[in-house]
């Protein structure tokens, strides 16, 4: 049997339902990159968002910080409820009070996430306060305080440096510091440890967890690394080909209720026996724009039956114990 049921959540901080994201392509039909994203993030919860590249994770992130238009993408339908707003329909003016202020963002790459032509101090002060002339002294002190929070030693030296003079781990700490500067309620972290070595990765994850506990904020942690998610998150959302196909508590995920999640679990490197060939998932994820009818995993799934290839992609349905699956035959899994 699966682990203990999740506690009944208080009203979620973020409630994404039926989210569809498309990319404009001139006069042709928009290209759908996300279709049927549904998940919730509770207050003070760390939620992992897992999926292969091209599964639409990054687009979901962008919809939470309102930067879809920069990539020519837009929300076709669905709702993103956050603190009384529907982020799917608010205008740019309303976004300005939320983006970066109530929802912080941690970039994918520590190496490219900081502005190369600004000192660390300038970037932190920019994050703390847009009105740079006002109260220069107190915002300089706050910048230093933020570096203390993310455990950077000798902050007074680091403040005067440029990003290229710092190590990858230090840079990611600075990025985290600047993301939490305006005291957001939600942090969106899009693969925050890409390009960092494993020990640094662990440190950054520990730091994120500490900050989460101290500030009581919620974190959406995007990753393709299940091991990382296991360590940090309470809840996991699995995405495949633009759809959320399973949500579960992190312990529950040991017994997947969707064949795609099961395949992901089987292909984990750290679980492979030495000398044995690594397990990979058969086939490739279906290319965006050529999704077949029915379940988009059907072609790679050894459990697929004829009803799997009909109609729309199956919706995520609650299957008890607080978890949900989009598989029509979830009950056939062990």
């Amino acid at each position: 049997m699966s682990g203990a049921p999740l506690p009944v959540p208080a009203p979620a901080l973020v409630d994404v339902s039926g989210l569809r994201i498309g990319i404009r392509q001139g006069s042709r039909e928009p290209l759908r990159v996300v279709d049927r994203a549904d998940f919730q993030i509770g207050r003070g919860e760390i939620v992992g968002l897992v999926g292969e590249s091209g599964s639409g994770k990054s687009m979901v992130c962008r919809s939470l910080i309102g930067t879809l238009p920069r990539r020519g993408a837009f929300i076709m339908s669905g709702r993103i409820e956050f603190a009384g707003h529907d982020l799917a329909s608010i205008d740019e003016r309303a976004w300005r009070d939320i983006r970066g202020k109530k929802i912080g963002y941690i970039t994918q790459s520590a190496l490219a996430g900081l502005n190369p032509v600004m000192t660390i101090e300038a970037q932190l002060r920019e994050a703390i306060d847009q009105d740079l002339s006002a109260n220069a002294e107190s915002s300089a002190a706050r910048a230093k305080g933020l570096l203390d929070v993310v455990r950077i030693r000798r902050p007074e030296v680091v403040l005067r440096q440029f990003p290229h003079q710092l190590s990858g781990g230090m840079r990611q700490r600075v990025i985290i510091a600047s993301a939490i500067a305006p005291r957001p309620q939600l942090l969106v972290a899009d693969e925050p440890t890409t390009g960092l070595d494993v020990t640094v990765q662990a440190e950054i994850m520990k730091l994120l967890r500490t900050i989460q506990a101290d500030m009581g904020l919620s974190i959406l942690l995007v990753s393709h690394d299940l091991a990382l998610i296991d360590d940090v998150c309470e809840k996991v959302v699995v995405m495949h080909a633009g759809a959320c196909i399973e949500t579960a508590g992190v312990e529950q995920l040991a017994k997947p209720k969707h064949p795609y999640t099961a395949a992901l679990q089987r292909s984990r490197i750290e679980l492979a026996a030495p000398g044995q060939e690594l397990v990979t998932i058969v086939g490739r994820p279906p290319a965006v724009g050529s999704w077949q009818a029915g379940c988009r995993f059907a072609d790679r799934c050894d459990m697929a039956r004829s009803d799997c290839r009909q109609g729309d992609h199956p919706p995520l349905r609650p299957i008890g114990q607080g978890r949900s699956s989009a598989c029509l035959h979830w009950d056939r899994l062990p």
């Binding site: 910080i65 930067t67 920069r70 300005r96 983006r99 970066g100 202020k101 912080g104 963002y105 970039t107 994918q108 790459s109 490219a112 996430g113 900081l114 502005n115 190369p116 032509v117 600004m118 920019e126 994050a127 847009q130 990025i175 600047s178």
Partner: peptide, 26 residues
């Protein structure tokens, strides 16, 4: 195409500042 530009957008940097520090100077 670089990621720090998105940081600038998320921070809501003023228009002129954005053009100079996030687009032109780099």
């Amino acid at each position: 195409a670089e990621e720090f530009v998105e940081t600038g957008v998320v921070r809501g940097v003023g228009r002129l500042r954005f053009y100079w520090y996030y687009l032109l100077r780099p």
